Amino acid sequence: MNEIWGRAQQQDFRSRVRGCLLGGAIGDALGAGIEFDSLDAIRRTHGEAGVTDYVPAFGRRGAITDDTQMTMFTMEGLIRAHVRRDAGVWHPPTDVHRAYLRWATTQADWGPDERKKDQGWLAREEWLYSRRAPGQACLSGLGDERMGTPAAPKNPRSKGCGTVMRSAPFGLLVGWEPGLVFQLAVECAAQTHGHPTGYLSAGAFAVIVHALAHGEPLDAAVQRALAHLAPQSGHEETTEALRAALGAVRQGLPTPERVQSLGEGWTAEEALAIGVYCALVAEDVRHGLLLAVNHSGDSDSTGSICGNLLGVQHGETALPPAWVVELEGRGALLTLADDFAMEMTQSAGLHGDGWLRRYPNA
């Protein structure tokens, strides 16, 4: 970054980064136990209000899924991209792709391989070596080392929400222009999902997060994303979904049925629309997250997207503390968020041997 960061600015940015990462993880964990349930089934099991707290998933309360796992590796890849710039190497899509390959290893191996010295600290976190219902397109797109690009994407027909749910960290590159944030998110989404709706939804989400990180209101952030979508080939589904989310706000009080009018969230544009709508109508973080998960469909992904938005908008102190405390991997999430915030604001004083052991530039 070229600008000078004052202490208050650094503290505000760190709070927004923490809020974004933790908020997404909380939404993910709230939806993890009901991801494949219909609204009727959720109500039969948990009461008319649906889930109002964590329910067990993957053997515990507060468990995260592949959504948060991949978001963490996105953030780690962006840190390493900035570190590698010191060595005269600057191609962030490649660094994010390598981070996604490290995530793919956690889905196949029993634990970290200490023989690989370039892995960094995140890939050595044993608790991440656990399959949490990963999307097939994410797994197949990372099944070999060829990096998909918008010109030659992996899985060209796939527009699953696996692009959007991992893309919030691109929006936290607050020193970048919005157009570059959009493009980077698109390029990295095409590494696993090649349908225009899949990768353009990721770009739109990144632009929305980017605007919120700069203190813009959410409705203005959505309008900014629509402006970036308009000239893109194949933007129509994503644009229509975002406009539907804005329109739903004016249709009356928020209900699970109104959420379901936007879709189920399995595809990228539907998950984005649901997450945006729930954040727009949220009375507070708790209300928005519960609305985002209590519907028929991909509850963990829509909860994660909504949590990213509310977290970056309001900062970490707005998150319900009881949910923060019980969240799986809280220590690692906070460490990663703080490292990202420091890399973006104080990189000149960081890049010594200790930092390079954490984020190797190999």
Rank of each mutant, 00 (worst) to 15 (best):
99 A>H: 01
187 E>M: 12
211 A>L: 00
243 R>Y: 00
208 I>W: 01
270 E>D: 10
41 A>Q: 15
17 V>D: 09
273 A>T: 10
30 L>R: 06
28 D>K: 09
337 A>G: 02
88 G>P: 04
207 V>S: 02
3 E>R: 15
163 T>D: 10
296 S>M: 11
180 L>S: 12
75 M>V: 12
304 S>L: 00
169 P>W: 05
294 N>M: 11
2 N>T: 14
119 Q>T: 13
330 R>L: 15
175 G>Y: 09
14 R>F: 04
288 G>W: 02
13 F>S: 04
287 H>A: 11
143 G>N: 14
300 D>Y: 10
37 D>A: 14
150 P>N: 12
8 A>S: 14
196 P>H: 07
362 A>Y: 08
210 H>S: 12
233 S>N: 04
185 A>I: 06
312 V>A: 01
24 G>C: 08
153 P>Y: 07
150 P>G: 11
334 L>G: 00
284 D>Y: 02
234 G>L: 05
220 A>Q: 13
277 Y>L: 01
210 H>I: 07
274 I>F: 09
201 S>F: 04
349 G>H: 05
162 G>I: 12
65 T>F: 13
112 P>Q: 13
253 L>M: 05
359 Y>R: 02
44 R>S: 15
323 W>G: 00
261 S>M: 13
313 Q>P: 00
42 I>F: 13
118 D>W: 05
168 A>F: 05
171 G>D: 08
42 I>R: 09
190 A>D: 07
247 G>M: 06
42 I>W: 10
1 M>V: 14
35 E>N: 13
210 H>F: 08
32 A>G: 10
225 A>P: 00
60 R>T: 14
335 T>K: 13
84 R>A: 15
1 M>I: 11
125 E>D: 06
137 A>N: 09
97 H>I: 06
30 L>V: 10
253 L>H: 05
121 W>R: 01
354 G>L: 14
227 A>Q: 10
129 Y>D: 02
221 A>G: 04
323 W>P: 00
138 C>H: 04
292 A>Y: 07
128 L>N: 02
3 E>M: 13
140 S>P: 00
199 Y>H: 14
155 N>A: 13
75 M>A: 15
39 L>V: 13
77 G>E: 03
212 L>N: 03
84 R>S: 14
61 R>W: 08
171 G>E: 09
68 T>F: 13
279 A>L: 02
265 G>A: 09
216 E>Q: 13
267 T>L: 14
58 F>L: 15
122 L>N: 03
307 G>Q: 05
